[in-house]
Design a protein around this nucleic acid. Structure first.
Lengths: 145, 145
DNA sequence: ATGCAACTGAGACTCTATCTCATATTATCC
DNA sequence: GGATAATATGAGATAGAGTCTCAGTTGCAT
């Protein structure tokens, strides 16, 4: 399997763009931790590691990572988008606890089939899906407001 | 079935809040058209119908409608949230064309079952879900960039 | 009618995200 | 290697969504 950097470099080249040190630093940091993140977090993490990079560059780089398929927008909350890296990981969806806000990842073949089935029914050629299930985790059951 | 207004009034009463003329106007307008909308659109529609209402009141009212279960956040795009009214409609999900941006609603029992199945597997008591499927509609197939 | 809590509107403010532009970097061609 | 052109960056300005403040208003309960 190609490394993330190779994938990104090829994606950029195909658009006549370069893999600059800034873009590479963002990419590396995005894959450094397996967790959801937002842009400000990413900026802080890069700063703490001594990277000199502007917010503007991060804001410019993330849509490229999404477009290249390396990263996913996960959800919009607290007024901004949250992301996750997906390259090298099996596709998964999210179960969100309405009590403690924790997020559990899961994979389910039925959902993959549903994508195909519904696409066919409507004449769509599908490319992917995003499923979020809401509820209460074992610890939060009974505590519902 | 209760009317939307009754549902909203009860929801508000239970929180010690009132159903004011402004809140009612927002509610009525939200249910006046079956389509996705954003807050600015709603503001314009209310204005055109001669309603004097401030943006602040609309921003304050919509989260209440969502909390009461009458309205749903559908997606975040173009820098802001989009909503739909759901009370009195069967639960449905969305198929989105990546070419022309059109949105097709669908309902699928398999997805409902998946919610239950996955909730059980993870010990969650589920309350709902949101599924978006991405792809290309019949007209846009072949036009992919 | 009076008092009180809830509510509204206008505008100030905050915060996310984008844009501008001068400067810097990189690739390419000679 | 040096010149040139295309691409990229950073800093700060700007735009726009959404929230907050506060003075004045409304509506309910007694």
């Amino acid at each position: 399997m190609k490394t993330e950097i190779e994938v990104f470099r090829e994606f950029l080249a195909q658009k006549g763009m370069r893999l600059t040190p800034e873009r590479e630093a963002v990419l590396v940091e995005v894959f450094a931790e397996h967790d959801h993140f937002d842009i400000d977090e990413l900026f802080m993490r890069l700063r703490q590691k001594g990277q000199r990079i502007s917010r503007a560059s991060i804001y410019r780089t993330l849509p490229l990572l999404v477009e290249s398929g390396l990263v996913n927008e996960v959800y919009f909350e607290e007024g901004h988008l949250h992301y996750e890296h997906i390259y090298g990981h099996e596709h998964h969806c999210h179960l969100r606890c309405l009590g403690c806000r924790q997020i559990v990842e899961f994979r389910d073949d039925g959902v993959e089939e549903a994508e195909k089935r519904i696409g066919q029914a409507k004449g769509f050629e599908t490319t992917g899906h995003k499923l979020e299930i809401y509820g209460y985790c074992p610890q939060c059951q009974g505590k519902k407001k």
